[in-house]
């Protein structure tokens, strides 16, 4: 009995040995011999994810503010916004947060050109965006050594990118309401506040002006929220909001959202 058992296992082992040896040699052959054919064309059609009727879909795009950098609770304004909305409504809310820390307008533009993001945008009821902060401030460099021409150039590029981004979003989904969160001035309590304030105000004004060309798009001002006692609402990097700051933005945006 024991003997046949051992024999069976031994023969199975020999079989296993041969199969594994084949697999190993095949790997070497496969990885080393260069093939002419690369990825064969995927013919299957991308099946459209079906638009579901229940609940509302919120898509968040943009930079570190969307991601929530600086928030001790890690939620960001999006997190608090969802909490606010859940109190306000019985709808089931689904959030897709595609914010990436440090994104500038051209990066957002190339992101929304992606097919997957567009599929999400297509289904969205509300689209929230924060963008432009990294374009303008560039980690604080622009406003430390201000140069009017340089800023004008940056702004022009930013507006072009934003316009193209908005065009893509609008052509993908006409009905979704777009909320673009404006910039605040994190340097407002520094010496040259007058200058930085003017730059940020101009920036917000131009952004708002651009948004006016599109239906169903709302500019959400945040400048006034951070105007007084800015340090109470900023994270220790003196650039990103802290939890309190994010809450302020969330409350304001939430009060504007209707469906």
């Amino acid at each position: 009995m024991k003997k046949t058992y051992v024999s069976i296992i031994s023969f199975l082992s020999i079989g296993a040995f041969l199969v594994m040896l084949f697999g190993f040699l095949w790997t070497i052959q496969n990885q080393l011999v260069k093939k002419e054919t690369t990825v064969r064309e995927q013919t299957q059609v991308v099946e459209e994810p079906e638009k579901r009727n229940e609940g509302k879909i919120i898509v968040a795009l943009g930079d570190s503010l969307t991601r929530g950098t600086g928030d001790e609770e890690g939620k960001g304004y999006i997190g608090y916004l969802i909490e606010e909305l859940e109190e306000k409504t019985d709808e089931k809310l689904t959030l897709h947060n595609y914010g990436v820390k440090g994104y500038r307008s051209e990066q957002l533009l190339s992101q929304v050109k992606g097919e997957t993001i567009q599929n999400q945008i297509k289904n969205a009821d509300v689209i929230l965006m924060t963008i432009g902060g990294n374009d303008l401030f560039q980690g604080g460099q622009t406003l430390v050594s201000p140069d009017k021409e340089a800023i004008a150039l940056i702004k022009e590029q930013y507006l072009n990118n934003l316009k193209e981004t908005m065009d893509i979003i609008k052509s993908t989904n006409q009905d979704a309401i777009i909320y673009l969160v404006g910039l605040y001035n994190p340097f407002i309590d520094l010496d040259d506040a007058a200058m930085t304030t003017k730059v940020v105000r101009d920036w917000n004004y131009s952004t708002n002006q651009l948004l006016d060309q599109y239906s169903n798009s709302v500019f959400v001002p945040t400048f006034d929220l951070f105007q007084l006692k800015v340090n109470d609402y900023l994270f220790s990097d003196k650039f990103h909001p802290n939890s309190k700051g994010y809450r302020l933005i969330a409350e304001r945006a939430a009060s504007l959202i209707t469906w």
């Binding site: 994810p49 609940g55 879909i57 991601r67 089931k92 689904t94 897709h96 947060n97 595609y98 914010g99 990436v100 820390k101 440090g102 992606g114 097919e115 997957t116 993001i117 599929n119 999400q120």
Partner: peptide
């Protein structure tokens, strides 16, 4: 994600990784 579409999940993973890259 309220969704089982793999594209959504994968896109989310890409975004998450991009965020980790910036830290």
């Amino acid at each position: 994600l309220g969704d089982v579409d793999w594209r959504t999940t994968l896109q989310q993973q890409i975004v998450d990784t991009q965020n980790r890259l910036t830290s």
